[in-house]
């Protein structure tokens, strides 16, 4: 899927640029994009190390498992592939909680930790498991109680009611999350995607 999207973006950009006369800009943009990507990644090193260190303490202290156990009733339905007490559950909850509070700096490292835990249960090295897809979809829809950035911009623009959008954002992101869960679950049942499910494919292999 990403093959099509990626090629589509590049091809459309090139063809459009011929007509809009922006070929040089497109070339520059590709290089700047690559630079930005490296800067973002390198910028993550410090904060990643910090949160992974803290998470390791939380793990050894049994906090992650404790969290996993608390949310077990919800997660065992959402993530049937994951053992209910698995640390992946605790890490996912921490990531979602950071999103709720609008702490995007902490949310990314915690989310990556959760991804790593989910990967430890994935039988494939390069293919996403159903749990990983669902977790990602929930993250792109991210419920937020405190959209701090946008409130800041509204205050700066002299809004009379900068918080009026908290309720609307919460509503919209809750809808998006529900749709994300349903879509990820339903699409996972489609033949095209079921065929590539790394955790089913392995079981089917001996039949050959």
């Amino acid at each position: 899927m990403l093959n099509y999207v990626w090629f589509g973006l590049v091809a459309i950009a090139f063809v459009t640029a011929i007509f809009t006369g922006k070929i040089p800009e497109v070339g520059t943009a590709a290089v700047t994009g690559a630079e930005t990507a490296v800067n973002i990644s390198l910028g993550l090193i410090g904060i990643m190390a910090l949160w992974l260190g803290i998470m390791k303490i939380a793990e050894e202290a049994g906090l992650i498992k404790l969290l996993a156990r608390i949310i077990k009733p919800v997660t065992k339905r959402l993530f049937p592939e994951i053992p209910p007490d698995h640390p992946a559950m605790g890490a996912m909850l921490l990531n979602l909680a950071a999103n709720w509070l609008g702490l995007s700096n902490a949310a990314t490292p915690l989310g990556l930790k959760a991804m790593e835990e989910l990967q430890s249960l994935n039988k494939s090295d390069d293919t996403a498991s159903n749990s990983q897809v669902l977790f990602l979809a929930m993250n792109t829809a991210s419920i937020t109680f405190i959209p701090a950035t946008i409130i800041g911009i509204r205050v700066a623009a002299g809004s009379k009611d900068p918080f009026s959008i908290i309720a609307t954002s919460l509503f919209a992101s809750t809808c998006a999350t529900i749709v994300a869960i349903i879509t990820a679950k339903l699409l996972g049942r489609l033949k095209v995607f079921k065929k590539t499910d790394p955790n089913i494919a392995v079981i089917e292999e001996p039949e050959k």
């Binding site: 990403l2 390069d126 293919t127 996403a128 897809v133 990602l136 993250n139 879509t183 995607f193």
Partner: peptide, 17 residues
């Protein structure tokens, strides 16, 4: 997220997102 665990085949993640 997928890059951090070297996942290249994202299956239904793009349409779901």
């Amino acid at each position: 997220y997928f890059g951090s665990v070297a996942i290249k085949k994202t299956r239904h993640a793009v349409p779901a997102g």
